[in-house]
Amino acid sequence: MHIPDGFLSTGTWVPAWLLSAGGLGYSLKKTAQAMKDRMIPLMGVMSAFIFAAQMVNFPVMGGTSGHLLGGVLAAVLLGPFAGAIVLSCVLIVQCLIFQDGGLTALGANIFNMAIIGAMGGYLFYKVLILLMPSRKGIIVAAAVASWFSVFAAATICALELAISGTSPIAVVVPAMAGVHAIIGLGEAVITGLVVGFVLKVRPDLIYGQAFSHGAGASSSPCGGMLGGAPEEGKS
């Protein structure tokens, strides 16, 4: 869903840059406030994994492919703010080094995939885990929220194209939403598998669990049902 240069009008990509800069600035501030030493390598590994996974397009139907976006995956492990930063880093490197996504469109791409994809997706995930407070609930919530994040990002991407006059709204919105409703199924499978794996081997790496300070699991949205791995000696 990386928008290239040429698809967005100046009246669209400039405000998108400003929105993303604001969202990213806020994320940097919030992440710096809550930064723990243990998050540093995890942010590196998540950046690397999401970059690699985004290269692997899977076929979806009749000559169309899709790939993981990873916004919800990053946010489930790192929280919405650090998750959005990781996604933004990946998008910036893809744009500058690999010419994937335009430079003028970078703001819109960050808005769609980092701000909506990671932060918006996380909000949805958080509501879902409140409804399903269990280990399995976390996997289901992550999978469903990741589907939603792809669908939402695609719809907003389509709206940006419509506002730019690139394609009529009645044409581009259903087309983008429709194809990404299918691509999102791949996102849900991969996100569910990875979150399930992490829950099995290092449940404390799920955000809101070990990263919650002091009181431990009791203050987390998951309410300690993950067995509350001890805070110390796990870095």
């Binding site: 869903m1 990386h2 928008i3 290239p4 240069d5 040429g6 698809f7 290269m55 692997v56 397009n57 899977f58 076929p59 979806v60 000559g63 169309t64 492919s65 899709g66 790939h67 744009c95 500058l96 080094i97 690999f98 010419q99 335009g102 430079l103 003028t104 695609a154 991407c157 389509a158 194209l161 690139t166 394609s167 044409v171 581009v172 087309a175 983008m176 194809v179 990404h180 691509i183």
Partner: peptide, 30 residues
Amino acid sequence: ASPWPDGLERVAEDKGFLQKAEEVKPVVSS
């Protein structure tokens, strides 16, 4: 990886606006 166009490229091709990206040169060369 699948060489097929991704969702956005597919829509751009089907709805006839893919050439808009081909008309512009990248701002920076990667």
